[in-house]
Amino acid sequence: MLKISDLVKEYPGGLRALDGISLTVSEPQVVAVIGSSGAGKSTLIRCINRLVEPTSGSVRLDGEELTTLSRRALRRARSHIGMIFQEYNLVERLTVMENVLSGRLGSVSLWQAFRRNYPSEDVSAAFELLDRVGLKGRHDDRADALSGGQRQRVGIARALMQKPKLLLVDEPTASLDPKTSRQIMRLIYELAHERGTPALVNIHDVALAQASADRVIALSDGTQVFDGTPEGLSPEVLNDIYGEEDWSATIRKVDDDDNGDENGDTEAPVEKSKPAPRDIVRNGAVAE
């Protein structure tokens, strides 16, 4: 599936954001990438679909080398890699449906894109996805009319519209309140497993990463310092990654948050019908 070897990114000015990263994701799993800000998390996932050009190294997706692709071939490759952003990055003046359908831009003609005339299987897939992420009936709303959590759901639907071989997720919850953050992470986890798509998720919230990933990778100063199961993230390991700190409080934070009464982003209909789960994702319905 995804095989990264010896990936290096050096920015003009000499900053070495990635210093020889090697990483293989060979099964549909959610891989959380943690690390302090500036550790290279964002650069790593952007080097995969070359929104940032890597300096050297190799990125192979299903055997195809991405780093040397021509512009046209790169566009085709990108159309099979879904991406989810911290600031959602929806096109705000377009409707929810247009945003979701824009996930198919790599496969329709320019004229179809201009006329918003997408193939019928794409349209029904879009409706299905909107239903799945809990936004049934909102397809004609403008994206800027939605709350943060709802926007991120549209962002997820857009990425999945691409029928991706790989999901790149960049700090999906950094702009959301704690409760919505967990709902979004659970959704990403569920959908990645439902569709058998591996996902690489940048996340700075260690507790959330532990609770919602199959595997955790830690970066520090552009190098990989940890690769293992969430359970393996002991306070000693975290000290290595972030420096000395009392980690017991951070690791326990998950439970505290769940009982809290956040007044944030909870208006999505799907949540109202379900009781708030005590634990998230990993003990949920979809975990193997």
Binding site: R75, R78, H80, I81, M83, V91, S102, L105
Partner: peptide, 10 residues
């Protein structure tokens, strides 16, 4: 928003 649309392979 531009980056997001670019990432879809447009």
């Amino acid at each position: 928003q531009v980056e997001a649309v670019r990432a879809t392979g447009a």
